[in-house]
Design a protein around this nucleic acid. Sequence first.
DNA 1: TGTTGTAAAACTGTCGACAGTCGACAAAGC
DNA 2: GCTTTGTCGACTGTCGACAGTTTTACAACA
Lengths: 241, 241
Amino acid sequence: MASSTAAPKAFIQQQNLVEQVADYLTQAIIQQHFLPGERLSEVQLSRDLGVSRAPVREAARLLESRGLLISKPRRGFFVRALNAVELEDVFDLRLCLERHAIQRLTERYTPEAQHALEQQVDALCEAAASNDVSRRIEEDLQFHRLILHYAGNERLLRAFDDLTHELRLCITLITKTHEAPDTIATSHFQLLEALNSGSPDVCRGAIDYHIGVARKFVVKGVGETGDSSDEESADEDVLSR
Amino acid sequence: MASSTAAPKAFIQQQNLVEQVADYLTQAIIQQHFLPGERLSEVQLSRDLGVSRAPVREAARLLESRGLLISKPRRGFFVRALNAVELEDVFDLRLCLERHAIQRLTERYTPEAQHALEQQVDALCEAAASNDVSRRIEEDLQFHRLILHYAGNERLLRAFDDLTHELRLCITLITKTHEAPDTIATSHFQLLEALNSGSPDVCRGAIDYHIGVARKFVVKGVGETGDSSDEESADEDVLSR
DNA sequence: TGTTGTAAAACTGTCGACAGTCGACAAAGC
DNA sequence: GCTTTGTCGACTGTCGACAGTTTTACAACA
């Protein structure tokens, strides 16, 4: 869907408007058609999408719960702008979840799981070889999602999915920086090997390293692009600095 | 709600129907005025509460994102019914989050945090001595929330808060079972001692034990009351079963 | 008596409209 | 010139209504 910012008119025709609007907004935010901190006008959106304001509002609330939007009473919805601290927090939580997941996975590592993960690494390598950055990101996330999935805790997976939305938000901020395909490959093969070893300690070390690299990569990227929260200060950041 | 984050709360918060409806629904669900699996009629609710359907729908979506309600297209919203497996998952995720939090807390344990936690244990003991079960639960949750809070990761805290909603859902299911006040006290003092020791390993052991006890307690309770998920349908979970 | 088809009822998804509120801008006061 | 106050426009919060769908009630039939 190469909808430019121009006129997405008649974009939406089927039912389930809320979800479609949510998808549209998600894509638009990730692809930076809406910039961080920008305000979304309900009226404008509903006009552009050809729907009424009700589904737009409900979709916006959905995205708010996913951390993509922030609502200010009587002011409307704003695209969330992650600052450096929040970014660190996201990666810290990701580490928390994935550590736990891979720990559980060692206890129930089936051939099926192994096969699925290996296949996913293949898909990831293929995507990395191509130039489709967003596809690479998705395959990468999907690999990690599989780890969470086979960890056998639905709620844990949901927490990861919730986090993933924010992860996309900051990952795509720095799509310019590009990892080498072979780096990506080896990086994930190491995780597979760790799982095959069956050792929880090895797995933990591997995931710590893996996420640590990703974190540095993204944090550095954001530092370069310099989001620098334009918003005035005094948000609800507790006792920071 | 305890202050904790010390937000400069607005003086007048009369408006915002959505939040009020959400609070009402949350309380009603927790107090089992609506039973698990029961369907909520938007029209009926809006009539009862004297508001239109729009804020009711938005509030319901909010609760859906919190895991208290489940929406089925063209069918409406239903009160979530946790089965035994989901309950185990909730406690497993809780363990995951609190382990990580207490680990972080050992690295930044300030006198302020210590003081706050000690005060909260006092409040908890006081609540336990009284007969107000729901207050005891809230003080207990608040103690754990403080651990997450002082762990210094806002996103981690949010994940915990999200989980807490579901936690309340199942905890209040078994309010009949009643822990002895002294048990509660010692159980939490142990956590304080572990934190004072400064040893991550000791803390981890303490939190593992603590949550393990709570888990057994609740799971046993649910087993007794026997929620017995009536629903049994194929969801769209990825390639699981 | 049990089953099936049909029609009414109830409900959700969506829409357009109205009223109160917020921010911007201009005019008035120091 | 800078601050304060009043007005205007735009927007959100909320409402009642309509259309399509699902559920339920009921009657006809085997």
